[in-house]
């Protein structure tokens, strides 16, 4: 099972997304949502970090801070707004596959 960490400002709207993603992932993924102030404690075994579009400007600093080889990307705003968990999971799959090659 792959673990995905979603990051946004306070972990509110990403929590909605995480729930939908967990419902649709058929056990293939385990998704958690954390705020900017707390994600550093939840990096263990994370295979992919997805950032809410409203905090996408923080990607460079998150990259620097985690200092680990975890792929990081921002969620497509359209998918995020429509809470299209399926599309986000598909993108996640692609990024993880590319990263492991």
């Amino acid at each position: 099972m792959k673990k995905i960490l979603l990051i946004c400002n306070a972990g509110m709207s990403t929590a909605m997304m995480a729930k939908k993603m967990n419902d649709q992932s058929d056990g293939e993924f385990y998704v958690i949502a954390r705020g900017d102030g707390e994600y550093a404690d939840s990096l263990e075994n994370v295979d992919l970090i997805l950032v809410g579009p409203q905090v996408r400007h923080m990607i460079p600093s998150i990259k620097k801070e985690i200092n680990q080889d975890i792929p990081i990307s921002s969620i497509n705003p359209r998918y995020y707004g429509t809470m299209n968990a399926k599309a986000v999971l598909e993108e996640a799959k692609k990024i993880i596959d590319q990263h492991t090659i």
């Binding site: 709207s13 579009p53 409203q54 705003p77 359209r78 707004g81 429509t82």
Partner: peptide
């Protein structure tokens, strides 16, 4: 319809990014 309930609770992201 999807965004109005979160908006009631002060969460604007679905409409901000969905409409957009």
């Amino acid at each position: 319809r999807m965004g109005v309930v979160p908006a009631f609770f002060g969460i604007s992201e679905p409409i901000t990014f969905g409409l957009p």
